[in-house]
Structures are given as C-alpha cells and as structure tokens.
Design a protein around this nucleic acid. Structure first.
Length: 423
RNA sequence: GUGAUUGUAGCUCAGUUCGGUUAGAGCACUUGGUUGUGGUCCAAGAUGUCGGGGGUUCAAAUCCCCUCAGUCACCCCA
C-alpha cells in the first residue's frame, strides 16, 4: 500500500470557506492600514539567522523555537519566527528618506512549539510598524489602529492592557530594585522562576505559576520608576487614548516576551476566549532595535495580531462570519452541457459569477446542487428553451417564481436584477 | 520541552469497563417517489486501513508495547 501523508504537526490546510474568511480579515486590516497611510511591505519568509538573534537571547522564540538550518551554501538561515525584526532589517537596508516610515504586513510565521488550539507551528499575523518617530501620537495611532481593526470585524470583547517598560535611563534603577526583591524572596519562588531570574528578572513577572503569584504581586513595578521624560511620554499616550474614548487597563506586570521592547507596551486580549491562548495581539516600542541591527539609532513601534486566534475569538463572539464562495447564478443544463459552457463563459466575462452542473446529471440533481450553492438565481436550459432560443430564469431565494427570457437578453437582464437586489 | 487526555463513516458521536455473530446512529451524500424544477416529507442505497505499526489470543475497535495526530494545563506567545 502507498503511504499517505498528512500535514505536519502544528500545520494545517485552511480550506473554503475558512480561507475566504481569512482573506476577508486581511482585506479588512489592509483597509484600516490604508486609511491611516501605511504602505504594504512583503519581506522574505526566511532571513539570515542573525536578524532574529538580535531579537534577544532570553526569549524562547529565538533560543528554542526557531526553524533554522543550513542552506546548500552553508549559510545559516531561519524561517521567520516574527516579523518585526525582518521589517527593521528592511528599514536599515533601504534607509527610507522620509520619516516616519509606516508599513503594514501579513503572512505566515514559524515557531517550533507544542501545538494547541490557537497555537500553530505555522501561524499567520497581520501587523504594522512605524520607524523614525518617538512622538507619543504615533503610539496612540498604532494602538488605535489595532483597536479599530477589531471593531471592524465586529469584535467587542477585547480588552487593552497597557504598560510602560521604561528605557535605558530608568531601567537600571528598576532592575536593581526588582532583582533585589526577587532574590530576597527566591526561596519562595518556583524553580523555573529562579532560572528565569538569572536571565531576565523582568520575565519573572509574567509567571502564571500559582506559587509565584503572591511574590509577583508584591514586586516593585516599572511605572513607579519611570524618569520624568518617559513618564510624560506614557502620560501623553494615556491621554490620547482617553480623548479617543478607547478604554484600557494599566497592567504594570505586562512584560511581553520579546526582549527588544521599551517604553510603551500593550496587549489585546479576547475575553471571549477561555483558554490560555487569549492574547489576540500585542506590541510596543523598540527604540533600540534598529541600532542593534546595524542602523542609525531610530525609535520604532508596532504590533502583531494573531490571525488564527482572532478568528477563534470571532467564533466565540459569533461575529465576522463568512459564507465562502457564492455564485450569482447557477446554470442547469439539461440538453448536454454545451449551452452551459458558452453561457457560463459569457456571464463570467461580464463579471457575473456563474457556476454550473457537470457530468450530465439529471435536472433534479443539478437543481439540488444549485440550491446548495446558495446562488440567488438558477438558469434552466431544457429542450424547449434550446429550441425557442430562450432560457428559464428561476428565483431561488425570493418568491417571484421563474420567467422565460430570450437567450440573448439574459446577460443584461441578469446584470440588472443582480444590481437591484443586494445579495 | 514537562504532565494529562482523546483518536471509530465527510461531520458529531455510541460501542472499549469485563475481547466473541457480517462495527452502529444522526446529519451530509446518491438514487427514486415526482417523464424537465431545489428547499419539506417518505423510501432505498453507498461509504470505514475502528489514527498507524507490532504483540498477546482460537478470536482484538476492545488487552499490552511503540508511534503519529488533536486537545488541556504548565512553559511560551499571536
């Protein structure tokens, strides 16, 4: 017997109508980006491994989960585990003359994780990045764009968590205080957290282990250590969101998994999702990243939103449904199929979506397929119609019955009827 | 990566405890009732490597081992 293959672990085939739905989601995101003046960037799916190593050496995304390999030239390559690093690499490489540089993207990314619902090894994100300005108005614009996008899909159960991680001027004092606090309490921390503590004390705040909760709750928080300048920046962001009526929750322990974040960080969580994978998007400032990729010091901010999880959240909220592919008309040809071949081509050329029956099935069988296709109209061609140079146009949804129409009048007649009734 | 749990028709699932006739149901599908007309109804029909491989046994969907995949928690993150 021939061995059968299946999609690899953590990957899947997305088929109609889910695939149409995903496209519609990306279209909706593209529209939000266009409205705010963002250009589309399509960067390569694989990059020099080094691009991603700059993202941080205490993050699992980089240290444990990358799909990296040597290509035939012996070059170290990685499938992109995230897109910010690629976009910043592109920014540094092309050095755009006009700042700020505003781009949006969409596409697959790859992380070798243990799969779960809403967590795949190949997953899709949409996102934006802005390089070249640290105006808090940019932070506000970025966060707002994400917020409005969720709204455009009909989602209402999304909460916005906001924090500031400070910058190099305020971090040292905070880190010292945090580390001291955690070390003093190390005896009561979980083993895992003690390990994390050695690499990046900040990340301990993210622990979900019950044992750590009490200690984490009492830990000093970054927002109390912000210098005057970062504090003002953060205040300006909050005021901006207030003025737009966007509600948020200050979350002093929101840390985010990638090491490059500074100052403003945020996360969108779906309250409609009950599992642990309820973060449907996140982002923040990364004012040092361009420089670490060999560019001029350039502030940056952006976010990435998880397409797969957003669709799960939409399911949970019963919004953003999609019917898949629905033709305008279904042609039932009872005289051999040649009439259907010509008519379908003619209608399609005029921009009318036409599907048809095949295999010379009975009229009844073809009508069932027509019904299933959900097309609002069926065209029936039988012996009588063929002899008279007519076709029967049947209303499949309404109650106007069916009428006999001259074969040559059909395209105009159909175009008119389709124009009249929104479908 | 750690721990747990599930896998039977295209889909949702029963059957597995305690091995034993040709492995079932609903939905979907095909054909017919309806000699040209879908959606409701009625009837008939087709469809399974019981996730895969190996083992125990006279006999395995059922027991054992390995393996693949999904799901949940941790981890991590979108």
């Amino acid at each position: 017997m021939v061995a059968k293959f299946q999609a690899l672990r953590g990957t899947r085939d997305i088929m109609s109508p889910d695939s149409e739905r995903q496209r519609a989601l990306v279209d909706s995101f593209a529209e939000q980006a266009r409205l705010a003046g963002y250009g589309h960037i399509m960067s390569p799916i694989f990059e020099d491994l080094g691009v991603f190593l700059r993202v941080g050496d205490s993050t699992d995304v980089v240290t444990k989960e990358m799909y990296d390999f040597e290509d035939k030239d012996g070059k170290r390559i990685a499938l992109r585990p995230e897109l910010t690093a690629s976009v910043v690499r592109a920014f540094v490489q092309h050095n755009p003359p006009s700042l700020p540089w505003k781009v949006w993207y969409e596409g697959p990314q790859f992380r070798h994780e243990k799969p779960q619902a809403g967590r795949y090894r190949q997953f899709s994100q949409v996102g934006i990045e802005v390089l070249g300005s640290d105006d808090p108005a940019v932070d506000i614009e970025v966060i707002t764009l994400g917020w409005r996008f969720y709204q455009s899909l009909g989602m209402s159960q999304v909460s916005l968590l906001l924090n500031s991680l400070g910058d190099e001027t305020c971090r040292p004092a905070y880190f010292a205080a945090l580390e001291e606090y955690l070390r003093d309490n190390a005896a009561n921390l979980s083993e895992k957290s003690v390990e994390t503590l050695d690499k990046n004390p900040l990340r301990v705040l993210d622990s979900k282990r019950g044992q750590d909760q009490e200690i984490v709750a009492g830990a000093p928080v970054m927002v109390d250590y912000l210098t005057e300048e970062t504090g003002e920046h953060f205040a300006a962001v909050r005021e901006g969101l207030d003025s737009l009526g966007i509600s948020y929750e200050i979350s002093p322990r929101l840390v985010r998994g990638l090491d490059y974040y500074t100052r403003t960080t945020f996360e969108f969580a779906s309250t409609a999702l009950e599992n642990a994978q309820n973060a449907v998007g996140g982002g923040g400032r990364y004012d040092g990243l361009a420089e670490s990729l060999g560019g001029k010091p350039t502030p940056g901010i952006g976010f990435a939103l998880g397409v797969d999880r957003i669709l799960l959240a939409c399911d949970a909220e019963n919004v953003f449904e999609h019917a898949g592919v629905v033709p305008d008309v279904f042609i039932v040809d009872d005289v051999g199929g040649g009439e259907a071949t010509v008519l379908a081509d003619e209608l399609r050329s005029r921009g009318i979506a036409a599907d048809r029956g095949f295999d010379g099935r009975s009229m009844k069988a073809q009508m069932k397929v027509a019904n299933r296709s959900n097309a609002p109209w069926a065209i029936i061609i039988g012996e009588t119609e063929k002899a008279d140079g007519t076709v029967t146009l049947r209303d499949m949804h309404g109650d106007t019955g069916q009428t006999l129409i001259g074969r040559n009048d059909l395209p105009n007649e159909l175009a008119q009827r389709l124009g009249e009734s929104p479908r």
